[in-house]
């Protein structure tokens, strides 16, 4: 399959390893990965902070970059960016766009997937040949869980990983407190939520807390690093991208 990879602005700039793992994983599974070079950002931060005029060029650019009919599916290692493309772009286009944008947005929305959706629903694989001999707990990010309804898909993929010790995260479905600019505007309430999430993560004794969103992982990981918990965060793609021949070199997190 010819798959368009959207790196997301956060992934491209701050967490390139997660995007790299996504690209390599899909290539390793026999798919053609294309990276439209002029892609930038989906505009989610703008929309969720209340700005709908400003991201119009971003929404247009996304639709143009991935609109090409030869791209059969668009994938991104982020549930919230996929949610933005699928649920918010049409709102922006309807309000501040033109007919061309509305049509472009509708076309690209229909073929946009978060990583676990693409693997399980579109490509029909749960066994991706991964090897990860560590204790892992999985945090389902809110937009994956309740906006995209990815359900068990990430867990199916993780359970099929060779040598993994997958442990359940208590109160997994409660928000980690990130919420984009929420963590800045309401930093203290966000911190209170983060503390409960970290308590649950640390209670599992996991080496790694994983999720499908680098943004939530930046939040949880930033907190875990600050308290020197010994648990680190890795994107789901990095675990699925770890193989027996090229295992992920897990370094000890600071305690």
């Amino acid at each position: 399959m010819r798959i368009g990879l959207f790196a997301t602005c956060l992934g491209d700039t701050l967490f390139p390893e997660a995007v790299r793992s996504t690209a390599v994983l899909l290539a390793r599974l026999g798919h053609e990965v294309v990276f439209p070079p002029d892609q930038t950002c989906c505009g989610q931060m703008h929309v969720n902070t209340g700005y709908q005029r400003e991201p119009v060029p971003l929404v247009r650019n996304f639709a143009e970059q991935f609109g090409d009919a030869s791209i059969e599916a668009v994938v991104m290692p982020s549930g919230s960016c996929a949610g933005s493309v699928r649920h918010q772009h049409e709102i922006i286009a309807a309000r501040y766009g033109d007919a061309a944008l509305r049509s472009g947005v509708a076309t690209v929305k229909a073929k946009t997937y978060e990583l676990s959706e693409l693997l399980v629903d579109v490509l029909g694989v749960t066994q991706v040949g991964a090897y990860f001999p560590h204790r892992v707990t999985y945090h389902p990010t809110c937009h994956s869980l309740r906006m995209l309804r990815v359900g068990e898909k990430p867990l199916k993929l993780l359970r099929a990983v060779e040598a993994i010790d997958l442990v359940e995260l208590p109160e997994a479905d409660s928000c980690c407190g990130f919420g984009g600019t929420f963590a800045v505007k309401n930093a203290e309430t966000s911190t209170a939520m983060l503390q409960d999430k970290m308590r649950n993560v640390c209670g599992t004794g996991a080496d790694v807390c994983t999720a499908g969103d680098s943004s939530c992982l930046m939040h949880i990981g930033g907190g875990l690093s600050r308290i020197r918990s010994g648990t680190r965060t890795l994107h789901l793609a990095q675990i699925l991208g770890s193989t027996r021949t090229t295992p992920y070199p897990l370094t000890e997190a600071a305690r």
Binding site: N48, S174, C175, G179, F182, N186, S190
Partner: peptide, 10 residues
């Protein structure tokens, strides 16, 4: 008030 939410969707 509209910002008093992480938009978690619960």
């Amino acid at each position: 008030l509209p910002y008093a939410s992480s938009l978690c969707g619960a």
